[in-house]
Amino acid sequence: MRHKKHKEAGLNQPLGCALILIIAMVFAMATSVHAQENGASVDEAREALSKQEDDEGSEEQLEEVFQAAEQNYSLLEAGRHSLNYSFNYSYSGDQRLDLEVVNGQVRNLDVTPSATHNFTNSFSYDFGFKDNLTIGTRIPLVSKFDTQEELNANGVGDISVTTRWQPNPHVPGTMSTTLFSTLSTKTGVSPFEIDVNRQLSTGSGYYSIAGGASVSKVLDPVVLFGSGSLRYNHTVKDLNQVRGARLLEEVDPGFTLSSSGGFSYSLSYDISLSMSVQLTYSDETVLRFNDGTEAAASDQMSGLINMSLGTRVSDTTIVNTSVGFGLTRGAPDFSVGFSMPINISGLSES
């Protein structure tokens, strides 16, 4: 029966079949493994990690690679649409230290336990502008709960727009390369414009633009993939936020460098497994206050391992589930994800 379906789908080689399965499986792989941008605190690091799921990640890379089995280019064909839904839950728990030291004396010391639950429902839409050029947008809807402080927040996250360009047609057996750029807006609730003791943020608070490249190579039945990107985070000015006894007026989040790599393995026609690691370096973040003082959060690294399982639930639908583990302090303790394509008749690519 599987073979019959296989033929109906027009895939005559085992490789093609495995590829199609893995394509959707990796949708959930790269979620929430991203650049830590400001490093101002563990909290903000988490913001950064959780919000940039729009970055070119392993899912897009693999999707591109496997589509290339049938097409010259691995991106969406010109004029085609695709709509995807994904859900991600992540948990972070720790002890936060708030310390102010002036002339060697501790002026302010506060240790706060924290337990934050993040639920993100996101919708991403892609449109094939040309065969080798795809533009897409991602709209996250974020719900957060801090069970220690009994705070919660619901809000639209940072909406982002991504362009992916594949300069050369894909030749089976060779490495495929895609260049991408992402513009992230600050539509979410900014962490710099809230009452930090009573509210939670749902966005980064600044605009950022990222550019990078992703590569992949098929070694049947395994696909290797990797990517690297650089993100510039725009300085935010004219803030007016209470931070202890001072007012925060400006935040310069610095830049972010991130890379990821991993592999996918097809266990059968209906099941495939993936594993990837993402490492992110964040430049120091500078906070400027109304009294002329500055505070700099040192640069830091964060890392996360993600595993996902792709399951075919119908001829046209593959559902992905994933689980991730933070490797460093700035990353979530763990995350669980789910993603699937949305196919409303005539709206989505099948």
């Binding site: 719900s143 619901n154 809000g155 639209v156 539509t187 609730v189 749902t202």
Partner: peptide, 10 residues
């Protein structure tokens, strides 16, 4: 002057 909002109210 007063402005408040919530972007996601389910």
């Amino acid at each position: 002057e007063l402005e408040v909002e919530e972007t996601l109210s389910p």
